[in-house]
């Protein structure tokens, strides 16, 4: 068989031969980073809501103590997972869980991978969301409280939606980081894009060509995700127009008001 001699020749050859591998790896990378980001986001929301539970003079001592303990544990979680590399977390969690018998040998590795990315992302998200909550005017929470909403209700329907809108760029950033950094999971043999690329490169020892392809795929992924998140942000801002409902006299001509939109 005639082997290619040019860069593009090799690229075409490798794509044809290992297209499937690239596709599977891309799928796995997307699956892990998307699921990991979403679960991490939920973890972050829960942690942030727990950390902001209010106490007042009627709060019993035991509840106060529990809350203090909870805060210590949550802070510990955040410090540990932000303070160590994900590649090390992967090793410790995977081999630790294996030794402790928590995962049997047959456990699908993607589940482990998603767990690691989620818990790692959760630590970052908790801090990002805390920042988002601080960015929401205190009066919003007070108004919710003043009509009788509980801490959870006011967080869920008033504070967090605004906090999340404010931190959408950071959330998108976490997703992009996860797309790229899930590559470190190749150390525990997760068949994501980097791992698959390594296998593809090994056969003909064409590291440069294979990883050039890999780089382009990562770039396409991150670029697309960034665009999609922009669209979601737009959507969250809601309509820039509203319609003044026709009163009797104006019913012919409902008036539409257009708000000047600032480009951010």
């Amino acid at each position: 068989m005639q082997l290619p001699s040019s860069f593009f020749g090799w690229v075409g050859f490798l794509l044809e031969k290992y297209g499937n591998l690239f596709l599977l790896g891309t799928g796995m990378t997307l699956l892990i980073s998307l699921t990991g980001t979403v679960i991490g986001f939920v973890i972050g929301l829960i942690v942030a809501t727990l950390r902001t539970i209010p106490v007042n003079r009627r709060t019993p001592g035991t509840v106060r103590a529990l809350k203090a303990l909870l805060n210590v544990l949550l802070n510990l979680y955040i410090e540990v997972f932000r303070g160590t590399p994900m590649i090390v977390q992967a090793m410790v969690i995977y081999y630790g869980a294996m030794q402790a018998g928590l995962i049997a040998r047959g456990t699908p590795i993607p589940v482990v991978a998603i767990f690691i990315v989620s818990i790692n992302t959760g630590a970052y998200m908790a801090e990002i969301i805390r920042g988002g909550i601080i960015s929401v005017d205190k009066g919003q929470k007070e108004a919710a409280q003043a009509i009788g909403m509980t801490h959870w209700q006011s967080m869920v329907s008033v504070v967090l939606p605004q906090a999340v809108r404010n931190i959408m760029p950071s959330i998108g950033n976490e997703f992009v980081v996860n797309i790229k950094d899930s590559s470190v999971l190749n150390v525990i043999a997760v068949s994501e894009l980097f791992f698959m690329s390594k296998s593809a490169a090994g056969a003909y020892l064409r590291y440069f060509e294979v990883f050039a392809i890999t780089a382009v795929i990562y770039l396409i992924l991150t670029f697309t995700v960034t665009r999609i998140l922009r669209l979601i942000e737009r959507k969250m801002d809601g309509s820039a127009t509203y319609t003044i409902l026709g009163s009797q006299t104006f019913s012919q001509s409902a008036i539409t008001i257009r708000e000047e939109k600032k480009e951010g």
């Binding site: 009066g139 919003q140 007070e142 108004a143 003043a146 009509i147 009788g148 329907s157 008033v158």
Partner: peptide, 15 residues
């Protein structure tokens, strides 16, 4: 809270 409502200087409508 439902029976004793409040109106704020800075409105505090849910944005």
């Amino acid at each position: 809270h439902a029976k004793v409502g409040m109106v704020f200087q800075s409105f505090n409508l849910f944005n």
